[in-house]
Amino acid sequence: MLELARMDGLAAQAQSLEQSPLSVRGMTVSYGQKPAVFSVDMTVVEGSMTAIIGPNGAGKSTLLKAALGVIKPLAGRAMVHGKPLNGQRHRIAYVPQRASVDWDFPTRVIDVVLMGLYRELGLLRRIKVVHMNKAMACLDRVGMSDFADRQIGQLSGGQQQRVFLARALAQGADLYLLDEPFAGVDAATEKAIIDVLKGLKAAGKTVVAVHHDLATVRDYFDRVFLINTRKVAEGPVETTFTAENLNLAYGGRLAMAQIDQLELAAG
């Protein structure tokens, strides 16, 4: 009986892994001797919009990068629909932090978006009209098609962020991972980005974003993942985005007054 129940549990777990566009198990990442992320499990729900939230230095970006194999984790693994990440990368699009690149690099807006087509183009295939049209369409979706020929350094921070998003759109993935897409952008950009993300969700895609602004979590996302080196909580906004969980994640760093303003679900 017990054996049967255990196997049932395993089967259920395997099924949830298969359905999840990105699942992380036992992930530990360490810079030096101090783990930035410790033994974290995360199961992204297909078709959801998930915010990864937590205080500064809680390992939000690190978790994302480790899940993508950009950083090598000390332990743990990431799976895409229950399969190893390699071989499934075409299903994932990534928007890194804007500050992670040199914006004086000699490249135009359109060239950056074309980088999203790297898998399609491979090493030697020529860039044809089809590819250009595709890239322009992606720029259009973020409202940046007028800027296609600009050198990327001439853009404002918000415009740069939108170009990064257009590049991810060009990848044509099912799962979009964004590292602080709203950091330091203007209101117009924030609206443009959230419109695109909501459009992706409406099309059945999955979105995961590292997010800073607790005030907008409720409007933008339907699931949250709270982390502070260790996983604090994971689930739908209504049940998981609670004062109790925020206190657990942020410790004393969040004043009660701030939490009160968030119209949280009754924990």
Partner: peptide
């Protein structure tokens, strides 16, 4: 010439390149 695309991609945005596999 054969490697110009991956080399350019890595030079501009190594994180994105790595996430692309």
């Amino acid at each position: 010439l054969a490697l110009r695309r991956p080399m350019g991609l890595v030079a501009f945005d190594p994180e994105f390149a790595s996430a692309s596999g």
